[in-house]
Design a protein around this nucleic acid. Structure first.
Lengths: 126, 126
DNA sequence: TGTTGACTTAAACCATGGTTTAAGTTGTAT
DNA sequence: ATACAACTTAAACCATGGTTTAAGTCAACA
């Protein structure tokens, strides 16, 4: 079974090493093994977990909620329904945020159009 | 010409009054008038400007950049090109963020599907 | 043998984006 | 006359999400 160093994990997910250490300290990455020298060893499973954390972070889930989710994973099958419920609610929140951003983008497009037209006028006035 | 109080502005844009005051202090809402008693009076133009700030905030533009944009608006027509450039870059950044969120959403959907299937299995095992 | 690079920890530090508090002013309703 | 609601300010306070620093360990290489 392959293991990854923290620098490899950092490179794979484009997350600073300091952030990975911070996540571990916050409980988002439980049970990370160490070698004899105390260095972190990320198994494939730990890498997948880090991938999950990054995915939730990318969709703006707060650290405290990610921690709850990870705690439920560690707790086992009895938390399946809680996890499902959390992911469904989170999905809705993400869709809402995407909708808001998409709507706000229209306001930005209006400005781009307006500025572009005004620039054109100015150049025609030469 | 109609004027709005801070509570009306707050209600219209779903932004707390304290945040509006904070934005003004940060320079995001310049030239807001006051009545004799020192209360803020938002003209239609100021309301539109607040709408712009909210739009940029909704798309995660940092306060410092919003301030730069507003400063350019106040500065006048000579900054047209700078504003156009900023909005075009911002639009790209927003589209990138939406893309990242949309991609990450797939990871969440995978979990929802997996959990749903496992729940089904458990219920079939009755 | 010593020095470099890749790590470790705990603790301090930081930026961002507000919110809350305290004390005061004004206009209106009782 | 008074009390309440709706404001005002400056300053303090706060949460979130990290980043940076300092001091140390270890393996490998020159």
């Amino acid at each position: 079974m392959k293991y990854y160093s923290i620098s490899e994990a950092s490179a794979k997910f484009h997350v600073p090493e300091s952030t990975i250490r911070y996540y571990e300290k916050k409980g988002l990455l439980p049970l990370i093994e160490r070698n004899e020298a105390g260095r972190r060893l990320f198994s494939e499973g730990q890498m997948a977990l880090l991938g999950t954390v990054v995915c939730l972070k990318n969709t703006h889930m707060p650290i405290s909620s990610i921690k709850q989710y990870i705690d439920w994973i560690v707790e086992g099958e009895s938390t399946l329904e809680l996890r499902l419920d959390m992911m469904e609610k989170h999905k809705k929140a993400v869709l809402d945020e995407i909708t808001l951003m998409t709507e706000s983008l229209e306001g930005i497009d209006v400005k781009i159009t307006r500025y572009t037209n005004r620039m054109k006028e100015i150049n025609e006035d030469n």
